[in-house]
Design a protein around this nucleic acid. Sequence first.
DNA 1: AATAATTTGCACTACGATTGCAGGGCATAC
DNA 2: GTATGCCCTGCAATCGTAGTGCAAATTATT
Lengths: 137, 137
Amino acid sequence: MKELENTLLEKQINPTAMRLVVLDYLLKQTNAVSLTDMELGLEKTDRVTLYRSVKTFEEHGLVHRIDDGTGTTKFALCQPACTVDGHHDLHVHFYCTNCSETHCLPKTQIPEVKLPGGYERQETSLLVKGLCAECRK
Amino acid sequence: MKELENTLLEKQINPTAMRLVVLDYLLKQTNAVSLTDMELGLEKTDRVTLYRSVKTFEEHGLVHRIDDGTGTTKFALCQPACTVDGHHDLHVHFYCTNCSETHCLPKTQIPEVKLPGGYERQETSLLVKGLCAECRK
DNA sequence: AATAATTTGCACTACGATTGCAGGGCATAC
DNA sequence: GTATGCCCTGCAATCGTAGTGCAAATTATT
């Protein structure tokens, strides 16, 4: 299981026991997860530690934070292209109003947006709400 | 000042004293405002009443709610096209990372987004963060 | 192995969102 | 004009998440 460890090392993150567990958990998720999700999904964890773990991950370009409009921040692993310098996954996020799950749509890019004069973009996020494939069946 | 009253009546909202004050306040704003902003900007108001006022407004298609990623919900008056049936202002919102103000960009439409198969869109929101015209000077 | 640096866990704070409920105001019916 | 009921308002209180401070534990360094 050196895999996990290398993933962290590549991103300049100390591979502590806790962090390996968190990374392992994140790898198994198909959705973006909240801190509460992680807390419930992992044994013997402290919320604040999780909070700090994902924060570290985020700062090192390993996960990105998603605001799906529910008021609760969710997290998901980044695409490999993300670095410490910034997150490069300008993909769309999807929130299902039925099952309340939040998905990354890595293949759906955010289209170019022309801002009015004077405005300078630093970051763009696009959230679509609706029904996911599962819930539509 | 029957103006305000008519605006409410048109949207099927009882024009109470409180609501007229809130509407008046909203009309004077150039930015999206939070409940706290409103609380501070108006005398003699209760947060919960404000909360319920804008909620009523929202349900009747008079204001829309904006999530600018700060964790605090903001509100702004809708375009006239909005109705009880839904909000039709698919415009972009802009959050200035310097002055923390949130603006509606009513002329900047959200581009069409092609979702992967199976997903069904109900709502789309696009938030751009960066520097506003003022802060860039 | 000793020491320094980082990480973790607990306690606690802060704050926004939201609900329950009682009182007030207004309109309508009688 | 008085009673009835409905809607609105304001206060108190609850809930849930984010975040901080500090001491203990773990990990890295020499």
